[in-house]
Amino acid sequence: MILAVAVSLFSWPLPGYSAATWQWLSSLKGPPFGQSMRMPSALYCDRNLERYYVVDAGNNRLLSFNKDGEFLNEFNANGQLHAPFDMVKDCEGHIWLIEKGGNSLTMIDLENKAVENHSLSFNGQTVFPERLEQEDDILYVLDKTTGQVLALDMDLKVIRNFACRDGTGFVDFKIRNGSLWAMERDGKMVCFTMDGKPVSSVVLEDVVRFPYSLEVGPSGIFYVLDRHGGDVAVFDREGRFRYRFLTPGQAGGRLYFPIELKFDLWGRLCVVEEGNGRVEIFKR
């Protein structure tokens, strides 16, 4: 009985700061003898090749790394990229890239060395793509002007949308555990079925200065990246604040203008840092 009580007390982290939960593992930086990353904006994990891809937005290029964080290659489509911001790879190995400079969803066919720029529109209005995910041959694009997520088939036709009911719009989204989770500017989480129906929403405790990116753990725990606070806040499924970890700064393991939070294929938590020009990887 005493043991059960003790286990239940200590198995759940108490609210507040906690440094012990996640430990720094490695950093993804630029090429060892080349130009450092400048304002990286997104991370993509390739399941087939077991690689990381980092969008090095400030240098208009993509960088690849192996599972251990060793630099592999860089790619800039012969200088054709203009402010790339987010990327995914489809089942055929094509790279889909959001290019802010041309307001384009760009398809890169590496085999045929082809680059196709696509302007998107929905309901007669230009779409300004902000974030990108891919699942089962469907591309999911967050439109910055409306704050809704659009699901596109491979012909780039909008087949459904995931919109906020009260019109405040989403700042980030992730597809996790068979659902699409989207986060509003004030930190409210909305869960949609994959056919676009909102099924639940969770209002997070107001402890994050500037919520910017979200992750959802396998057990439904929310991780919220605080861009201004330079840390990660963790909430339970009811939105109650549990603990926060990491601190702002420029030294290793610290965050300066972090921009994206993502679990990699191996359950490690990755933080893309615009300010420090690197991706920090943490393990439990």
């Binding site: 304002m39 904006s41 400079g101 300004f128 910055k144 002007t145 409306t146 704050g147 405040t168 700042v171």
Partner: peptide, 10 residues
Amino acid sequence: ALHSHLLEQE
């Protein structure tokens, strides 16, 4: 640009 004030709103 990489960051803009095109706000996510209806």
